[in-house]
Nucleic acid binder design. Structure first.
Length: 262
DNA sequence: ATAGGCCTGGAC
DNA sequence: GTCCAGGCCTAT
């Protein structure tokens, strides 16, 4: 369940399912987490927080479950007592009397306290979250122009969670199309107008994706975020009619419109 | 900046 | 079986 908007949507669903009801079942697959099961039983969940693609489940006793879904982890919500049949590896189960949340396949899971949370290697280095409503275009613009980010090509910069948290490959591709920029460009070389367009797109595109309930059509068949270039190689750009191209940048698939992005 | 490895599931 | 993927870490 990959990029920031999808993780945040999952967090919303988990929060709605668990509410503030006490936990009646706590189960972890990993042996080193099993010792925490009794301590969490009867506790409640204070909040599901996201920091980019990391999900933090804060329990009422002060512990926090850190989980990162990488490319493959997935959360499910089911009525308690109706665990689905699946080939996926169950890693976490938390339940109250009504609802059960299940985390499958994720391998990057830890239980943290206030101290270890602050010291966590990923959380320590992530930048501001693009879905944080207090993050403004002005702040993004200043960050783009600050050292060392100003010298870095967008191909790598937009995937770097230390720059901004929550962007991933489809958002990188879509943001650069919306801003009309090439992945080889650097902030230090942009005009004022280009900087405005980029900082605007960096917030607007992920926020629109979140509003549209993410990009994952398999899970949200109705209305998903619409890609303009991602996975559209060989098709016509809806803005200029040019044929969309595909390549590899920062060892990830990259898509662009040669007519719109120069 | 880039390559390779890790982890897992789905498409083929 | 093979390859690819929306991620991220480490080594170079």
């Amino acid at each position: 369940m990959p990029e920031g908007p999808e993780i945040r949507r999952a967090a919303d669903q988990l929060a709605a399912a668990m509410g503030d009801k006490p936990l009646t079942d706590v189960w972890f697959a990993f042996p080193q987490l099993k010792t925490y099961e009794p301590a969490l039983l009867g506790e409640t969940i204070n909040a599901f927080e996201t920091r980019g693609k990391a999900l933090l489940t804060h329990f009422s006793n002060g512990l926090t479950l850190y989980s990162h879904n990488q490319l493959y982890g997935v959360w499910r919500v089911v009525p308690t007592g109706t665990e689905p049949q699946t080939n996926r590896q169950l890693r976490v189960r938390l339940a109250n009397v009504d609802q059960t949340i299940l985390l499958y396949s994720a391998s990057d899971i830890a239980l943290l306290n206030a101290d270890t949370l602050a010291a966590h290697p990923f959380l320590q280095r992530v930048g501001p979250d693009v879905l944080d409503v207090t993050l403004t275009e002005q702040t993004v613009r200043e960050r783009l122009l600050s050292a060392p980010f100003r010298r870095r090509q967008f191909s790598g910069l937009l995937l770097d969670q230390a720059f901004l948290a929550g962007l991933g490959n489809y958002l990188r591709v879509e943001i650069l199309w919306h801003a009309g920029l090439l992945a080889q460009h650097r902030a230090q070389d942009l005009s004022e107008t280009q900087l405005d367009r980029l900082s605007q797109a960096m917030l607007a595109v992920p926020r629109l994706s979140y509003k549209m309930r993410g990009s994952m059509k398999k899970y949200h068949a109705e209305a998903a975020f619409r890609f303009e270039v991602f996975h559209r190689q060989g098709k016509k750009c809806r803005r200029c009619g040019s044929i969309i191209e595909k390549g590899v940048l920062s060892s990830r698939p990259f898509y662009w419109c040669p007519g719109c992005q120069k």
